[in-house]
Design a protein around this nucleic acid. Structure first.
Length: 938
DNA sequence: AAGAATGAAAC
DNA sequence: GTTTCATTCTT
């Protein structure tokens, strides 16, 4: 279902080519769009500045290469659609089920049912969706810093010219990157004069351009960035708004921050992806994970390197493999050990240095090897992987299995750990729980580890995909260029290794490879805009210094990695790598799907160090000269701050960790997956975002209709009743009466709210609604058993607990609706609406007033009565009754219906409370409600 | 294109 | 407080 839908959407987007709106399509993420992108398009993208043209072209094409790249900015049109809220996610996920259950039901009906389900849904379950929505939103926001939900009033004109729709402006990013430096914080979109940047930035400006701008603004010292990894962690929620660079910085900071509390890590994979994607446009920016050792510069350098000679790298790699293969294994082992230790230490909250020291002491050999390893760089890693094909294969297999079973992101993370740390644990792999357990401690405690894990997982995934990726790669290669062919050969050499690389130290490899790959690609073809552009610029600006300076950056990065990553050199590397890869992939991703990305990675892995170093040096120098480093640093700092604040990110992170570990009711028992939130920045950059999102989405619990039915029975019934009556009538009434309805309802609601709100609101408890509904239903249909826990249990294991919990929640009875703001309104409206509708159908306006009064009375009283207890029943009933006779026929009717509902509701409340206490209360209530209802039906 | 639902943001 | 828009998809 989903897939089809998405596809449709995409197609629509693609179609939209002409239409900008279609671009929106990115619905999930820009990355998605990228998948569609063709290489040619990517090439176009190469030049950031040129991007604008491309955008137009793209627009024509309907691809969102731009989107992917620029992500945020770009597409003027808003390519980005506003993220779905929890309910929408829920709907999306469950609509198919509803449809299955009720094939004939039209969407509206289905939506209603979904709404019912949603209402019934356990708070926990709801929260999952809520969290997911939040996370996604945060990720989205990062990706689209300037994104405004509402174009305000400006929809006005659709300027034929795509670029400048008012909307766009709104949608457009604030692109305040430059300004960010001085007052990074609050340059909110609104405040900032988006106009200038907004126009140009999104479409035209590439990440590089952004960097440049930032650099210009930033006066600060250049070197700072590389040397100092850690930004201050102050917080600025507004980070998002900042330019993509900023985002990159955030990413890097988030990922790298060892010191930073877990929060940094907290950012979910999605979030990271978003960042990456957003960053992708700004390649350089993306990678700047300074803290960890790999600064954005480093990444940039990598990018540059890529441009230089991939081939060289390949050769080196091969050699390295041959010569160093043995060493690598040892190193890997040592690393594994380190990682394990690190994890422990991380848990303890030890700092990087401390860990590093420990690790170093313990693994002196490793350290030495490490250095060597560093020197050897990624290539060696590759070789290592090559050496241990068996393990890799096993892992892959396991992973595949797991993966199949568990789409969740968390899965990837878990797999990583297992794979990387202990091949032997593979057995655990089979049991997701086991995996989770293993990771949980580490992952939760440390962001870094998480990152590593994520990276690893990503790597693993890639490894799994090996077979497929190769194929894809081949295809590409054939199509692409000589470089590709070279890469291909390399890949062939390392086939088995691919997966292995991922395991241990893939990160470095990836980075290198990525860079190399990029370079190759660029050389042969410029699939990656950013990279090329950057590279070009960099090379132009300072090609001479490349070699010299290249070392420094490397050194820095390395040192950083050592220190910080001491624990996880791999992880650190991985981070930077991932971003780079991501960036490329994002652009590439358009070309190729995730699989393709893998191929790219492989290719990338092949890169050579020298070239990288040289590139890095060049980049670094350039950056410094331009002051870009400063800007990067600032961004990073901001990012950290943001992480520190933990705005959404914190929540996400926190939530994501816990929440993501869902108990998944889903298929087979609950499984907790940890979200990889920490990161995977690297991996996925491009497609992965989408994938992750999808995975997450898929991972979201899907409840069987039965459950809902049972739980919901009350609700649905209610609706049905109202619906039956109401459903058809409602439709009829809707058209004509809607406006009236709204007005009436608003009035009623407002009054209702006034009196009722307070009582209700304070009352509300968690599952009140549901309970109320049930009670209501019960009242309506005393005979029918609303729900039986047993049944629920039988159904899917899914939510037995939840179900039980729900019914069990008598306590909350007092509280009906936790609704907030509009929700409350709507909820009331809907409730009332139903009544009104019925009334409308037949009613005269006169009835309204009375009903209102009645409602008011009843409600307040009810609430009061609730407190009092059982007495309330009588009072309510009396009131309702009294009102009914006196009222005019129609009005009476209406009032009756309304009263009935209210009474039912109230009764329910009381019933819930009373029920537990005494049975007597229920019976009384029950009869009353039914009577009223009967009247209404008549 | 309208509309059903909820939610979040913007106004 | 209200409006807009996100998803889905029939009418």
């Amino acid at each position: 279902m989903k897939g089809s839908n998405r596809n449709k959407d995409h197609s629509a987007e693609g179609e939209g080519a002409g239409k900008r709106p279609k671009r929106k399509c990115l619905q999930w993420h820009p990355l998605l769009a990228k998948k569609l992108l063709d290489f040619s398009e990517e090439e176009e993208e190469e030049d950031e500045e040129e991007d604008i043209d491309k955008v137009q072209l793209l627009g024509a094409d309907g691809l969102e290469q731009d989107v992917g790249e620029t992500e945020d900015d770009d597409s003027p049109e808003h390519r980005a659609r506003r993220p779905m809220n929890a309910f929408l996610l829920f709907c999306k996920r469950h609509r198919p089920l509803v449809r299955q259950e009720h094939p004939r039901l039209d969407n509206r009906g289905a939506t209603k049912i979904l709404a019912d389900w949603w209402a019934v849904l356990d708070p926990k379950e709801k929260q999952k969706y809520t969290d997911m929505a939040k996370e996604y939103k945060d990720a989205f926001m990062k990706a689209n810093p300037g994104y405004k939900w509402c174009p305000t009033t400006n929809k006005p004109v659709k300027s034929p010219t795509p670029t400048i729709n008012p909307r766009k402006k709104l949608w457009a990013f604030p692109s305040d990157s430059s300004r960010d430096l001085p007052s990074p914080k609050k340059a909110k979109t609104e405040e900032m004069p988006q106009l200038n940047f907004g126009m140009a930035d999104p479409t035209q400006m590439g990440g590089l351009s952004m960097l440049l701008l930032a650099g210009e603004h930033a006066l600060g010292t250049p070197e700072m960035s590389s040397g100092t990894c850690r930004p201050d962690v102050s917080e600025s929620p507004e980070l998002r708004q900042k330019s993509p660079l900023f985002q990159f910085a955030e990413i890097s900071s988030s990922t790298s921050h060892p010191d930073a509390p877990t929060k940094q890590c907290q950012a979910s994979a999605l979030f990271q992806f978003a960042e990456i994607s957003s960053n992708t446009s700004q390649l350089g920016g993306a990678e700047p994970v300074k803290r960890c050792g790999k600064s954005a510069l480093f990444q940039l350098a990598e990018m540059c390197l890529a441009s230089e000679g991939v081939k060289m790298d390949e050769t080196k790699l091969i050699k390295a493999k041959e010569s160093d293969g043995g060493r690598i294994k040892e190193l890997e082992k040592g690393k594994e050990e380190r990682e394990i230790k690190i994890e422990k230490t991380d848990e303890a909250g030890l700092q990087q240095e401390g860990e590093f020291e420990k690790s170093s002491k313990e693994n002196i050999r490793d350290s030495k090897e490490f250095r060597n390893f560093e020197e050897l760089q990624m290539d060696n890693v590759m070789a290592i992987k090559m050496e241990d094909p068996k393990e890799i294969r096993k892992e892959e297999l396991e992973e595949d299995q797991k993966y199949s079973h568990f789409p969740d992101f968390s899965y990837s993370a878990s797999s990583k750990i297992i794979i990387s740390d202990v091949p032997n644990r593979k057995d655990h792999m089979c049991h997701p729980h086991g995996i989770m357990i293993i990771e949980d401690p580490t992952a939760l405690t440390k962001p870094e580890k998480l990152k590593k894990k994520k990276k690893k997982s990503k790597m693993d995934r890639h490894g799994n995909d090996k077979s497929t990726p190769k194929k894809t790669c081949k295809k590409r290669q054939s199509s692409e260029s000589d470089i590709e062919s070279v890469i291909y050969t390399i890949e062939a050499v390392a086939k088995g290794d691919w997966g292995v690389d991922k395991l241990g130290e893939t990160p470095r490899k990836k980075v290198r490879t990525s860079s190399s790959g990029k370079g190759s690609i660029l050389d042969a073809k410029p699939p990656k805009k950013k990279v090329k552009s950057r590279e070009k610029k960099m090379s132009k600006e300072k090609s001479s210094d490349i070699t010299k300076e290249s070392r420094p950056p490397d050194f820095i990065s390395i040192s950083a990695s050592k220190n910080i990553s001491g624990e996880v050199p791999e992880g650190i590397k991985a981070e930077p790598l991932t971003p780079t890869e991501d960036a490329l992939p994002t652009s590439l991703s358009g070309q190729a799907k995730p699989e393709d990305n893998d191929c790219h990675r492989k290719i990338e892995t092949c890169g050579s160090r020298k070239s990288e170093r040289s590139c890095k040096g060049a980049l670094y120098k350039t950056l410094v000269s331009e002051g870009m480093l400063t800007s990067l640093r600032a961004n990073v700092d901001r990012g950290k701050r943001s992480s520190g604040k933990g705005n959404s990110s914190d929540h996400e992170g926190c939530w994501s960790e816990e929440s993501w570990t869902f108990n998944q009711s889903g298929t087979s028992g609950s499984k907790k997956f940890k979200k990889t939130k920490p990161k995977e920045d690297s991996l996925l950059g491009s497609v992965k975002l989408d994938e992750e999102f999808e995975k997450k989405f898929n991972s979201l619990p899907q409840y069987s209709p039965i459950t809902f039915d049972r739980k919901c029975v009350p609700v649905p019934r209610k609706k049905k009743k109202t619906g039956n009556g109401p459903s058809e009538p409602s439709k009829t009434s809707k058209g004509p009466f809607q406006s009236q309805k709204k007005n009436l309802f608003h009035k009623i609601v407002s009054k209702y709210k006034h009196k009722k709100e307070k009582p209700n609101v304070p009352e509300k408890g968690s599952g009140d609604k549901w309970s109320n509904k049930q009670l209501y239903l019960d009242a309506i249909h005393p005979t029918e058993a609303i729900f039986s826990e047993d049944k629920n249990t039988t159904e899917p294991a899914y939510k037995v607990k939840n179900v039980s919990s729900i019914p069990n929640t008598p306590e909350p009875t007092t509280m009906q609706e936790p609704l907030v703001g509009s929700q409350k309104r709507k909820a009331r409206k809907t409730k009332i609406t139903h009544l009104v509708r019925t009334a409308d159908g037949r009613v005269s306006p006169a009835g309204d007033d009375k009903p209102k009064e009645q409602l008011q009375r009843s409600l307040p009283k009810a609430t009061e009565t609730d407190c009092s207890d059982e007495c309330s029943h009588n009072t309510e009933a009396e009131e309702t009754r009294s009102s009914t006779p006196e009222m005019p026929a129609v009005s009476a009717f209406f009032s009756l219906a309304a009263l009935a509902e209210v009474a039912a509701m109230e009764n329910v409340h009381r019933g819930q409370r009373s029920t537990p206490l005494t049975h007597d209360g229920q019976p009384k209530e029950m009869p009353q409600a039914p009577v009223l209802i009967s009247c209404a039906d008549q």
